[in-house]
Write a protein that binds this DNA or RNA. Structure first.
Length: 425
RNA sequence: GGCGCGUUCGUCUAGCGGCCCAGGACAUCGCCCUCUCAAGGCGGAGAUCGCGGGUUCGAAUCCCGCACGCGCUACCA
């Protein structure tokens, strides 16, 4: 539910938005830097670069480009080799050999780096495409971007960016490095932990609003107690200075709880009916005719909305409303209460069927009263009798409230199902 | 190897010098409610605020050092 204002897919006033269509812009910026003496062409082969790196590693020396092409002499040699081999060059930034760069991060505050630890990084690749460092700065300037928010793994690159901004005479935008979201094991989110894509959460039945709320509260908080917050409130209150600096572990259990809250308390009833109907049409056995009866779904919704946390649970909770094909065993039917006493169970079911057949009004209140009375005359515990009826009518031991369910299933089908249970015993 | 970032209950977080022998939420445990399951109500357990020094009458909050974790160190982003 996060919408962007412009982009390659929806257009906008600052296109083109595709990098391959903006190559001239990057080239122009690189040329300007070249002309100013803030950049130089590097003709070194990747094979040589690999060697240099391997050697540095061996000598336990900080890795980085050895600047052979930084001076005219070295560059001439490299160029000759390259041209003989038909290779072209890259453009590297000519990082000052000493001094400091500092910038203010909206979350981390003022940070200063010693430029001596920076090497001469590539800005324009030999295929004419820019690296991220050049690309985002050129694009953001052209597209009038005001804020750059990115993962904090980018912090070490920021001083390079400051050097480019300075050389290009661009006023840097607000920059903020946000902490990252980790998997339960403290490592970065990956397939191992299941869902790494928002679509997986959508498929499991998490609502966009809930996921938005949850993600919004990872690394940011409104105060010391707010947990449920709408997108509108979020937009109204969000400030970068309340973003935390430390990484967060993705707590799926809390997401689950929050999704449950949205299902039972936040999403409007009519909307929920649509959501449930769509989900049921997808999850219920193909043998059940589509489209599903929305009126029926609407009656069921209030019964299950407070018992599920994710939409994927809906079908297993209420399939018996849609089909008469119930699958349960005699063991399940008898349960603990009637184990070894099928005759008693049978008697109870027979009486229950009569009560159902003869009940004056087919309402859950009336049914409940009648069944409580029946339990008493049978000398059975109400709960035990109800469980018996529950399995007979729904095919399972865990269901929405029994009498409300029976009211919806209807008298005829309930009686038929009770008789089927008796038959089975 | 170098550079950088981070460190409050299991997890997400509040806290920005005294209101904190640290508050809320999820999870967990117990009780209540109850036709099952949930939901709900009440209550409990759970953090020597990474460690060690300072500064101060007073530090989770300020300063320094260390430890640990993570990141970056590509003609990737």
């Amino acid at each position: 539910g996060i919408e962007h204002d412009e982009g390659p897919d929806i257009g906008g006033p600052y296109g083109p938005y595709t990098q391959s269509e903006r190559l001239d812009l990057y080239r122009a910026a690189a040329d300007r830097l070249l002309a100013q003496g803030d950049a130089y062409e590097c003709w070194c082969s990747s094979a040589r670069l690999d060697e240099v790196r391997a050697d540095q590693q061996r000598r336990k020396v900080p890795p980085g480009y050895d600047r052979r092409c930084r001076e005219e002499a070295g560059r001439a040699v490299a160029r000759k080799e390259a041209e003989a081999e038909g290779r072209s060059c890259v453009v590297r930034f000519k990082t000052p050999l000493e001094g400091e760069v500092s910038f203010t991060d909206a979350i981390h505050g003022e940070t200063t780096f010693n430029v001596a630890t920076l090497d001469d990084f590539v800005m324009l690749k030999s295929d004419g495409f820019p690296t991220y460092h050049l690309a985002y700065i050129v694009d953001d300037e052209a597209m009038k971007i005001t804020h750059v928010l990115r993962g904090d793994e980018w912090i070490p690159s920021a001083p390079r960016h400051m050097l480019i901004y300075r050389a290009l005479g661009i006023e840097p935008p607000v920059i903020a490095h946000v902490p990252r979201v980790l998997g339960p094991d403290g490592a970065k989110l990956s397939k191992r932990h299941g869902a790494t894509s928002v679509f997986e959460y959508r498929d499991q039945g998490y609502l966009p609003e809930a996921l938005f709320n949850f993600l919004g509260l990872i690394g940011w908080s409104l105060d010391d107690k707010t947990e449920i917050i709408s997108k509108a409130e979020f937009i109204e209150h969000f400030t970068l200075d309340r973003v935390v600096k430390n990484p967060a572990v993705f707590n799926v259990e809390k997401l689950q709880w929050m999704n449950g809250v949205y299902i039972r308390e936040v999403v409007p009833a009519e909307e929920l009916v649509t959501l449930f109907a769509e989900r049921l049409e997808r999850d219920l056995p193909a043998s059940i005719a589509r489209p599903l009866d929305r009126g029926l779904v609407a009656r069921i919704a209030p019964l299950i909305r407070e018992r599920i946390k994710v939409l994927s649970e809906v079908a297993e909770y209420c399939d018996f409303f849609f089909t008469d094909e119930l699958h349960y065993s005699a063991d399940e039917l008898l349960g603990k209460a009637y184990r070894g006493r099928p005759a008693e169970a049978k008697r109870g079911l027979e009486e229950a069927a009569s009560v159902a057949a003869e009940a004056a009004a087919w309402t859950h209140e009336g049914l409940e009263a009648a069944y409580r009375a029946l339990a008493e005359t049978l000398g059975a515990k109400a709960g035990d009798l109800f469980s018996l009826v529950r399995v007979a009518v729904t095919g399972k031991r865990v269901t929405p409230p029994l009498f409300e369910s029976m009211e919806i299933v209807g008298r005829e089908r309930c009686v038929a199902r009770l008789r089927a249970a008796i038959e089975m015993l």
